[in-house]
């Protein structure tokens, strides 16, 4: 098992160092969840304890209180450079979108204003292929046009660990260092490396969060798993979707595709 995790880790370190060698300036989205916190751990491994670029929280003001508290604690403990970037309000979103999709759109728009403000050429983002069908089709280095949109019908070829790293002025690239990990891999790695986590993942009163989103569009799922061991055991035996608690994915057949093609993570 640990051999398997070592392989995943080595591949992620390679991708992170490739991004750092090729793309400048670089930033990393840190949603404070388990995936991007594991990714942050990998970044620190890649640079022997350092984090040579800023971390970004796309803040809608709607994250759960525990999430903000965890951000502040880790930022202090690990001496992190965190940009807390406020997303535009929901009133400014396309009002024809279903409510949860509209709410998620705020992050997309927040990312656009962040890029305009900081001129990042590359953004590290902790999505995984096993989360969702569209994310399964992603590239490790995924170029975005000027308006941040994802041209999923014409993605660049990507093979033999050689990535697309050159872009016209104004474009940026999303780099996905943990694209090849599964939810279980993340949990096993978190356990092995003893990576700190937000309490909300652990069951309280028969409920726990399997995926952390904003208050208004994320719900806890029934579970008694109150330790990492129990969570791993639970996941080994379940067939429910990780994003079952995320309402924006399912409002219409293509709501997640609409979000992603316009720049959502």
């Amino acid at each position: 098992m640990s051999h398997h995790l070592d392989d995943l880790e080595s591949r992620s370190l390679y991708i992170i160092r490739e991004a750092y060698a090729r793309i400048n300036p670089l930033g990393m989205l840190w949603s404070i969840g388990k995936d991007s916190t594991a990714m942050l751990w990998l970044v620190r491994k890649a640079f022997f304890g350092r984090v040579p670029f800023p971390l970004i929280l796309l803040d809608t003001g709607m994250e759960m209180d525990e999430v903000y508290a965890f951000r502040d604690k880790l930022a202090k403990d690990w001496d992190l450079d965190v940009i807390n970037h406020l997303c535009p309000p929901e009133e400014e979103m396309d009002q024809t979108l279903p409510p949860a999709t509209r709410s998620a759109m705020r992050k997309t728009e927040g990312l656009k204003t962040l890029l305009a403000e900081h001129q990042f050429k590359g953004i590290l983002c902790g999505i995984r292929r096993d989360e969702q069908g569209l994310r399964a089709k992603e590239r490790v280095f995924s170029p975005r046009s000027l308006d941040g949109s994802w041209d999923f019908k014409d993605q660049p070829p990507e093979f033999w660990d050689q990535y697309k790293t050159e872009f016209p002025e104004g474009c940026h690239v999303r780099v996905h260092p943990i694209l090849h990990w599964t939810e279980l891999d993340i949990w096993r790695y978190t356990q092995k490396e003893n990576i700190p986590l937000c309490d909300l993942y652990f069951a309280r009163d028969g409920m726990r969060y399997r995926s952390l989103g904003e208050k208004n569009i994320t719900k806890p799922v029934p579970s008694d798993a109150d330790t990492i061991e129990k969570i791993i055991h639970e996941l080994e035996t379940t067939n429910t979707s990780e994003r079952a608690g995320r309402s924006m994915d399912k409002e219409t057949e293509d709501s997640f595709e609409k979000l992603r093609s316009q720049g959502y993570m």
Partner: peptide, 13 residues
């Protein structure tokens, strides 16, 4: 998973 793939019944990516 793409709409276009389902519409045209062909895998794109």
């Amino acid at each position: 998973a793409f709409q276009a793939e389902r519409d045209q019944a062909v895998t794109i990516d």
